[in-house]
């Protein structure tokens, strides 16, 4: 059995989530090939060759894949798929974008966002915002799978696989990249951080998010937000944790001024330890919090920062 895993990267660094996706692929059992498709991405291929459990890295370096547009990526992956039984990508926005397109081109169903592997054809995935867990068997000959990285532990990176260059150019010519507007941050990536502190509507405005920054700096934490905070314009949407935002499962999640709606819990309830700071003792967040403190966040946050 052979598995093709598509690497998540930004043309310069391999994303940490790929290491967890490789772990999921290992659980499926088989020979793993890691595909690095991008532009000027030799450094990513070098990093990919060190990933344990990977027997070969395919490097496809062409301007057509610079922004990993779904139209081009899906044609490339579909062409390569002939040699593989499983096609696996990380359920981040890039993978979510092109993988269903691959599945449709191969005429197979896709199993999205798996959190566990039961066997080579049976996977576990959350549905209904994580309020139910489905065990799903794929009946297709080829399996197209996206992996929720927080469900798996990263593999180590001290291996040395061979890198094979392929020069397949797939350019659908139907779409083009115009611009990126990326959020600059010194803090750890939200999806990969071991500590996350998030603010909700209770923060009242964007300036007050600075109250979280001092704590985040002391703990080395990433800062997240609820949908209410994003919709109110306090912070940009890429900070949103929840069913429709990012799924996180850090060691410590601190929810500040967040009531704990179903859609928010879907994105963080697998965190190891949850702390809630809220002045409403009835807030649903207290039902999942390991440690709760009923207090005004404007008193509690400065005090917490000073005590860390």
């Amino acid at each position: 059995m052979s598995i093709l895993v598509i690497a998540e990267h930004d043309n310069s660094t391999l994303k940490a989530e790929t290491l967890k996706t490789v772990a999921a692929a290992q659980a499926m059992g088989g020979d793993i090939t890691l595909l690095v498709a991008g532009s000027n991405c030799q450094a990513v291929a070098d990093a990919a060759s060190k990933v344990n459990g990977v027997s070969k890295v395919l490097l496809c370096d062409n301007a057509a894949y610079e922004h990993q547009l779904a139209e081009n990526m899906s044609l490339l992956v579909t062409e390569l798929a002939a040699d593989y039984d499983h096609i696996v990508a990380t359920a981040l926005t890039t993978g979510k974008n092109f993988m269903p397109r691959v599945a449709a081109l191969l005429d197979v169903a896709q199993v999205s966002d798996i959190i566990a592997v039961e066997s080579a054809d049976t996977f576990v995935r959350p549905i209904y915002a994580g309020n139910a867990i489905a065990t799903v068997q794929s009946l297709d000959a080829k399996k197209v799978i996206t992996v929720r990285a927080t469900g798996f532990d990263a593999v180590a990176t001290d291996d040395n696989a061979s890198i094979e260059t392929i020069d397949t150019v797939c350019d659908a010519g139907t779409s083009s990249h115009v611009s990126d507007e990326l959020t600059e941050s010194e803090r750890p990536d939200l999806g990969a951080a071991s500590i996350v502190i998030s603010g909700g509507r209770g923060m009242q405005n964007g300036e007050n998010f600075s109250l979280l920054e001092g704590i985040a700096d002391k703990l080395g934490a990433a800062i997240g937000a609820s949908r209410a905070a994003v919709d109110a314009g306090f912070v940009p949407n890429d900070m949103q944790v929840g069913q429709t935002g990012k799924i996180v499962a850090p060691d410590l999640y601190i929810a500040v001024g967040i009531s704990g709606a179903i859609q928010h819990l879907a994105g963080m309830k697998d965190s190891k330890v949850i702390v809630a700071i809220n002045k409403d003792p009835e807030a649903p967040i207290f039902q999942v919090a390991d440690y709760g403190i009923v207090a005004d966040l404007f008193d509690a946050l400065p005090e917490l920062e000073s005590k860390l």
Binding site: V111, T135, L139, Q287, I293
Partner: peptide, 21 residues
């Protein structure tokens, strides 16, 4: 259908935590 749902279960319950003062 190309996928078969074998079972659907409730998610693991989190144990109730404590409120600190």
């Amino acid at each position: 259908l190309r996928t078969k749902v074998l079972k659907v279960t409730p998610p693991a319950e989190r144990e109730a935590g404590i409120v600190v003062e």
